[in-house]
Each structure stands twice: as structure tokens, then as C-alpha cells.
Design a protein around this nucleic acid. Structure first.
Lengths: 350, 350
DNA sequence: CTGTTAGCGCTTTCAT
DNA sequence: ATGAAAGCGCTAACAG
């Protein structure tokens, strides 16, 4: 093999400077503040860089020196495929990305697997702040993030000392949509998201709401319970069916048994439009009329909810993503709580 | 405000070492190779770290020193919302993430906006390698990535000097599925993905395949053309309708006009299951029988394709994501081309 | 098992 | 407009 003297290592700024016959600082300025350097120097530096195949300052060295990596970490507590398949998560991420791109920051996705090394991956992330996609109260990752002392924002919950919280008032929204779902009902029920990270599906009654570890789920259950109470139902009269994720097919399968059984509900308040769609499908299969035989509500006001004429809760995940990113980057976010409203459609009796 | 003498700065490893009464190296080992340090030292270091609120070595300094950030960059040429909404992209990313997590690497998403600063964001990313989600031949980002001299892998295309390519043989797959789509047809047609980043929708005949800038689209068109030729059709007899993305509703809208018009095709080879589903919906609305009045094929063998009894091309995006990541990290990937096969179902005449 | 030395590549600060 | 000095925080390489 013939001698190939080309240094296979990347060139450094110092080498570029030397070759250009200027000081390292001038070379640095040529890249970072071209305006502060004479046209002649700029040209020399550019030429030297081209000759050496220098593609610009090393981001690693730069971030050490600057004390900032200009990157935001986004912690996804879900297994990654779920995270990307959940349309709400996708829109949320787009909101985060928009803000990052706008201020010239990158965005690192930190998928949590539930394994021990989650904490290590958090600590090893070269980021300037964190956005945490909603997780459980007992998630050890929260402590790890907190200990970095970097700015951090949690979406929806849990509420952690020292971290900002972005998201709507889930209890209030659940109460309001629950009042529509359960109006005129004799057997109200809830189709819930998972209670904790084990994500066990199944039916419960008299569920201890306080013990639910996903705060978003807990708050929504609380709101539904309050709506049921207003309409004269004790909480243990309200069936709670838990599905493992916001997936239409799983919900459809569950609902076929459920709506076909002896104990069938005549009103289902669901925590997501996707699972609500599963209930609607099952109802159609079983020949149950909506809302006469069974009223259904969803959550998120997706395009699908509109198509299905589904009463639901509208909120902007994109805005919430932006707000999270802005807060984590120390930009102004205002201090109003995020907005939501109930969209009343034909799937409820009122 | 009372004096708060706590250094608001994060503590350094040197400070921890000093407080623990050991050398910086011992402290470093205590964090990085706990096994190489006596239990006593380890305890002292841990105690000092706790007292100072030290959360572990600074990743920025670490990556400079190590010459590696243990992070993989994933370049998404699409606008971010599209990227996350495309189920194929989601699965692909999950494949990448799985490999990254397995070797303790992070993953940075680099969304391209099409603006000038895309190149800067590439250069500023502190990553050890790149995976590029398929893009156009003329994407300036490819040159930027190439100039970093970091290992890079392109998914599906374009093929770039010095970068690995992962993906199936699109032309061969298109040819094979095209033969089924067009069998027994008198007016074959193609429902294509965008030709270039402008993503203009519209109908063409006699399209100049060579001028298409998305290599994946180009190769598939080429395969369909070859299938049509085999069945005795000149290319300018084959209508090509272009949609702007793999979206059922857009395709349905296009197809309602198209299948309802005078010039309607009796066979449509579509580049995605989602758009194929739109064609099927439009056919149902118009009362056209499938495959008798119009044969339809899709691409990707999604769950939806199975539900719709759609002839399609199966490939594993998850595997391709893993392979991309492995290649970009310098791990072994074997050298077989990625697998695919045509799944024949009831939406075609053969 | 522990410590010393050196320096990763860059940019802030302050001078000229 | 340009440059010299200093050091960001850490760990590889090598002693002891």
C-alpha cells in the first residue's frame, strides 16, 4: 500500500490558521463572526480550510468552551415506537423542533427503556436543558434530570420541585367532557390510559384514583369521577377499563367483549380519540346505536374525532411542545395555563 | 435577599476529588470504572459528590476528551410533522433507536427545514456519525455531511460517494408488483410520491423518469415502467399521478376526480399503502369494483394493507433502521442487500 | 490501586 | 482588525 500521508485525522482550527498565516483567533472569527475579519483574512482562512478539508469548528470542543451545546434533550418515557406512533406525541415533538430550529438549537431524543441505564443516558446527554414527555410520579429519571441542575420542563406531569410544568388542567377538562359523556346514562364507564408503567389492561371498579402513578391519567380519572358524582353516581358504580396504550385496535378488541357483555355500559368516557374510535367500531359491529345505546367521548380532537362526529377535548399539542421548548431554553412563555375546550358533537346525548 | 453562598455553578470533578481527598483520576475512575477503585475511595468520592451536588462528569468535556460524543445523528429531510406522522419513518427511527440504546449511544434528530441553516445545524451537531433518511439527489446537506468525514449511511438513496447505502432494490420490487398491478389492464397508471422537494401534486404522462430527484421515487417509476413495457405499454400510455405525501385523504381526493373522469385508469400501482387506501376508498364511493374495474397495489405491507386485502411490497423498515445505525456506528451489518417480497392479495387481477 | 502529566480543540478576555 | 494567553472539565497514557 503506497504511503498515504494525508492525516486521516480531521484538521484543527490551529492548523488551518497556521496554513492561512493568521492567528487561531482570526481563523476562529472567520468562522464565527465573519464580519469582524478583513475580507483578505477571510479568504485566506477559507482557502486553507478547503485545502485541509476542514469543515468548521469541532462542536465538541466548542460546547466545552462555551459551556453550552445548543441542544435540547427531549425525554420520551414511552418505548420509542409507541412514542412515534402516537399522533399526539408526533405533533408535540414538531412543536419542540420548531422552536429549537428557530433559535439554532439541535434536539436530542432520549428514549427511556425502563432499564437501569436510563439514568446514565440522561447524565451523558450533552444538552442545555430537558423537556420531559409526561411520565409517572415514581420515574427515577426525574431525579436524574433534577440533579443535573439544568433547566427542565415536564409536559403534563408529574409536578417536580424545580421543574416547570406545561399542560392543561386535565381534571377540569375531564369533568366537563365527563358531564356530556354521562348525561342520561345509567351505567357510566371510563376507558382509561395505563395506571402505571406496567401498563396492565383490565377492568376495575372502585379504583383507588390516588394510587394511580401517571398523573395525567390520575387527574382525568378524578375529573370523570367528579362528573359522575354530580350526576348521582358513586365511584364504585363506574366501571374503569384500562387499555395499555392509545390504540384503536386494542380498544376495539376490549370493547367487543365489554359492550357485548351483561355488564355493558351505556356511556364511555375515553382518554383518547384513538381508543374512542375503537369503541365506536365495536358498537357498530354489535349494532349498538351511538349515542342512544352508548354515548362515547374521546380526547384530543384529532382529525379522526371530527370524522367520527365524536365529542372530545381539544388542546394544541403543538403549542404545548413549543411552550415546553421555550421554557426549557429560558425564553419567555407567558404564564397562562394552556388552553382547552370541549367540542360537543353527535356521539353524546347532550 | 440573604447571602446564598452556594456556588451556583456546577461542581467539577476536581473539586469533588479534592473534597474526597483523592486525586482527580481516582474520582474519575470512581465514576467511569468503579471496579478499578477501592471501595473506600469510591465511598469517599460518592460522599463528596453528594455534598457538592455533583451529578457526574460533564458530557461536553468528556466528549472532547474522548473524541466521541457517543451520539448518532439522524437527518430527517422531511418537515418534522410529516416525518413523525409517516408510520414507516416511525418504525425506521425505532430501529435506529434500538441499536443506539443497545450500545449506550444517544440519538440526535436533525430535522431539515430546507432553509439555509440546515447545513450549519449539521456541522454543529456533536455526533459520531450520521444516518440520512432518504432525500433528493440535489440536497446540499449531503455535501455538508460528507465534509465532516464522519461515517454516514443513507437510507434508500441517493447514493453518495463515501457513504454507505441501505435499502431494498426499489426498481426490482416495483417491477414485480407492477406486473401484478397491470396484469389484464388496458389503462395502467401509477400513483407516485413527490418527484422533488417542491412536492407538487398533479397528473403527468410521458414523465421523464430520469429527471426525478428523489431516487426512491425514480427507481420505483423505473420499475413500474419496465413492468408496463413487458405488458406491451409504452411509457406515455401510463398516466402518472403525483401526490405530495403518503396521506390517505389527499389520495382519496385526487382519486375521486381521477377514477370518476373520462380518462380513468383500470389499474393503479401506488407507492404507499396509505395512498393506495385512498384509491380504494374512492373506488368504493364511486361504486367501482376492485380488482375487476380497477386493480390496486400499495407498498410497505402495513397492517392496513392486510386489512384492505391489498397487494403490496413487504419490507422491514425496522431492520433497515437497525442496519443504518449499525453501519453508521461501524458495527458489522453483513453485506446482503435488504430483503423484500411482494404480497399478493385480492386487490389485483392476478 | 492511585497519582502525575499532558492536552483534547476551541473561544473568552484583554491587549495591541 | 488581529493576536497572546489562559483554561473550559475531563481522561488517555503512563508511571508508581
Amino acid at each position: 500500500m503506497p504511503a498515504d500521508d494525508q492525516p486521516t485525522r480531521r484538521a484543527t482550527l490551529a492548523q488551518v490558521a497556521e496554513r492561512a498565516g493568521v492567528s487561531p483567533m482570526t481563523a476562529s472569527y472567520a468562522f464565527n463572526r465573519p464580519g469582524r475579519v478583513s475580507a483578505a483574512s477571510r479568504a485566506k482562512v477559507r482557502a486553507a480550510a478547503d485545502e485541509l478539508g476542514y469543515a468548521g469548528p469541532d462542536p465538541r470542543a466548542r460546547s466545552l468552551r462555551r459551556g453550552s451545546s445548543r441542544t435540547l434533550g427531549v425525554v420520551l418515557g414511552e418505548h420509542l415506537p409507541y412514542a412515534f406512533e402516537d399522533p399526539q406525541a408526533a405533533v408535540f415533538l414538531a412543536g419542540v423542533a420548531e422552536v429549537c430550529a428557530g433559535v439554532g438549537h439541535g434536539m436530542t431524543i432520549l428514549p427511556l427503556t425502563g432499564a437501569e441505564d436510563d439514568v446514565a443516558r440522561i447524565r451523558d446527554a450533552a444538552v442545555d436543558g430537558f423537556v420531559v414527555w409526561t411520565t409517572t410520579d415514581d420515574d427515577p429519571v426525574l431525579e436524574a434530570i433534577s440533579s443535573t441542575r439544568l433547566p427542565a420542563v415536564v409536559h403534563s406531569g408529574p409536578s417536580v420541585e424545580g421543574m416547570a410544568l406545561v399542560g392543561i388542567d386535565n381534571a377540569a377538562a375531564a369533568r366537563e367532557v365527563g358531564l356530556l359523556a354521562f348525561a342520561g346514562s345509567r351505567r357510566p364507564a371510563v376507558l382509561s390510559f395505563p395506571l402505571d408503567k406496567r401498563r396492565e389492561a383490565g377492568t376495575r371498579t372502585g379504583l383507588d384514583v390516588g394510587s394511580v402513578l401517571f398523573p395525567v391519567t390520575r387527574e382525568r380519572l378524578d375529573g370523570y369521577r367528579s362528573a359522575a358524582a354530580d350526576l348521582g353516581f358513586a365511584w364504585d358504580e363506574v366501571q374503569v377499563v384500562v387499555c395499555s396504550r392509545n390504540d384503536t385496535r386494542e380498544a376495539e378488541r376490549l370493547a367487543l367483549d365489554w359492550l357485548g357483555g351483561d355488564d355493558r355500559p351505556d356511556a364511555v368516557a375515553a382518554m383518547g380519540d384513538e381508543v374512542a374510535a375503537g369503541v365506536l367500531r365495536a358498537a357498530a359491529t354489535l349494532g349498538a346505536r351511538v349515542p342512544e345505546d352508548v354515548a362515547v367521548t374521546g380526547w384530543d380532537d384529532s382529525a379522526r374525532a371530527a370524522r367520527l362526529d365524536l365529542t372530545t377535548v381539544a388542546q394544541s399539542m403543538r403549542d404545548q411542545g413549543s411552550r415546553c421548548a421555550r421554557a426549557a431554553l429560558g425564553l419567555d412563555v407567558g404564564d397562562e395555563r394552556d388552553g382547552w375546550h370541549v367540542v360537543r358533537r353527535g356521539s353524546t346525548r347532550r
